[in-house]
């Protein structure tokens, strides 16, 4: 498996992950729909996962790949809680637009 990953140089993985990560950040900052923001956060986490797997293969150290499993498990738990919160919001306001979240500002 290592050889397949190592066909591509490490810098390519770093750049790809950085690009995906930045797309995620821009998504979080510009989108107004709670579910799309949430998807952008997942994109950021997956960029991290990809980079961890690449680093781990290149240094021949399994710790990084084990950490990927931890991130996946925690992200799944977060999805469960997060979607529940969004559903709760939708039941009370009938929308998932975060611009409606201005009750506390005033």
């Amino acid at each position: 498996m290592d050889s397949v990953i190592k066909i591509i140089p490490l810098n390519a993985y770093i750049i790809l992950s950085a690009v995906i990560f930045c797309i995620g950040i821009v998504g979080v900052l510009t989108r107004r729909n709670a579910i799309i923001i949430f998807m952008s956060v997942e994109l950021m986490l997956n960029a991290v996962n990809l980079l961890l797997a690449a680093f781990s293969s290149y240094s021949g150290d399994a710790n990084g790949q084990v950490f990927v499993f931890f991130i996946m498990a925690v992200a799944a738990a977060e999805v469960a809680v997060g979607l529940a919160i969004i559903v709760m919001m939708y039941r009370n306001t009938g929308s998932v637009d975060i611009d409606l979240l201005n009750k506390l500002k005033n």
Binding site: M44, L45, V48, V81, I85, M89, T93, I98
Partner: peptide, 21 residues
């Protein structure tokens, strides 16, 4: 309370992503 929860969740998950990177 709903609003607090959703804001905390979105910001918290975003911060987690940055910390993980």
């Amino acid at each position: 309370s709903n609003e607090a929860s959703l804001k905390y969740f979105l910001m918290g998950a975003f911060a987690t992503g940055i910390l993980l990177m």
